[in-house]
Design a protein around this nucleic acid. Structure first.
Lengths: 215, 215
DNA sequence: TTTGCGTTTAACAAATTTGTTAAACAAAAA
DNA sequence: TTTTTGTTTAACAAATTTGTTAAACGCAAA
């Protein structure tokens, strides 16, 4: 039945998403994906043709969702600094939900560089383009030290994403539990804002209207 | 012969290092390692017992080298800001030499978290401990906004390493050639310093004494 | 020369993993 | 009830990969 098909198909996708992007089992086999979803291995092929196609689909959907969130934040009409605060908040929270997503992308694109194009094809708008004008206005108003939009966005992304990418190593070096590391990451929202703007982060008044489902 | 043994053994190690950490072929098979070194596949097992042991050895040696470089920079007697400038310089340069090293560590530790301990066991000294005193002095002198040594070092590492980790994606999004991306990374040395200290980077007078072999 | 030792090779066995297929199954339609 | 349609399963074949082993090779010492 159609209803059933969607159920099982979505079940597999949902469980595979957890397996790859939450549990970080980056090289899970089709058998392990099937086990996670509690179905027969052949179903993976029945619904998605091959392991690779399932992965591509998952990545495509997940990235699309994440990028839509980012686009929403960066095109909202609020003041620049609040916007960036929201960006930090959104990226860190999304990272806490899917700690291994970036990890996965990075491994996968190192493995097969030809796929980068595919994953970036949705990027008809670069996030650096979305903030360029406002950033340049802040710079000419003397509010921010001169910097290109590209470096600015990559600085932001680096500060938000790196601690998640290197989680295993950093957590071990500094001897933190999972809970402690989570708190550490949440604390970083303030730190990142201060590092970028050299001043305390404002209250996020507009924030609650933008993000409904936090992790 | 002993001389020959060391030659072939080192040849394999050297070529494998290039394959994994420079070319980024993270899941190269023993056959591919052997091909790269131009030797028979069984030699991998003869010298290193298993693929895994070869990898562990490579990672151990390479990380030890990198950490020694970092330790040297952070324990040199020069002023704090110059020291940090040297750190940025060293990390970015090392990253240009082995663009996939961190990538590899991150994938590998996500895959088998039990190995993190092994790779961090040499870390009897955390780099954050090496700069804590000086950092706190700068802070109490009002030269730097309050921040913990951990966040400070992770900020630095993030700004230096992330652009390399995400190279494939960033390069594609911003449409840069390899040469352009290399220049972009080198430009970042200045950017990172300014982001951290909110002022221009000083000339690195003491630098040339510390680093002899740049990439 | 031949003996011995470390090195290198080719061939083999075992395990893993992927994708296919034919048949069993369930439920709705005729 | 029978048929049809779509779903699920178990079994199979092929490919890949790892690690072992026995034999060949080369060179230095006896």
């Amino acid at each position: 039945m159609a209803a059933d098909e969607i159920q099982t198909e979505n079940l597999i996708k949902q469980k595979a998403k957890i397996l790859f992007f939450q549990k970080g089992f980056l090289d899970a086999t089709t058998q392990e994906i099937a086990d996670e979803a509690g179905v027969n291995r052949a179903l993976i092929h029945y619904y998605f043709r091959s392991r690779e196609q399932l992965l591509d689909l998952l990545l495509h959907e997940t990235l699309k969702e994440k990028k839509e969130k980012v686009r929403m934040v960066l095109t909202s009409g609020i003041p620049f600094r609040e916007k960036i605060a929201n960006f930090i908040d959104t990226i860190v929270d999304y990272g806490l939900t899917y700690p291994y997503l970036d990890n996965f992308i990075i491994s996968e694109t190192a493995r097969s560089p030809e796929k980068v194009e595919v994953f970036c094809s949705m990027d008809r708008v670069k996030s650096s383009d979305l903030i360029r004008e406002e950033l340049e206005r802040e710079i000419s108003n003397g509010k921010i030290a001169p910097i290109t939009a590209e470096h600015f966005m990559i600085n932001l992304s680096a500060l938000c994403n790196y601690p998640l990418l290197a989680k295993a190593v950093l957590q071990t070096i500094h001897g933190m539990t999972d809970a402690a590391y989570r708190k550490f990451l949440l604390d970083r929202k303030q730190i990142i804002y201060r590092t970028i703007f050299n001043e305390d982060m404002p209250e996020l008044v507009a924030y609650s209207n933008l993000n409904h489902n936090r992790p």
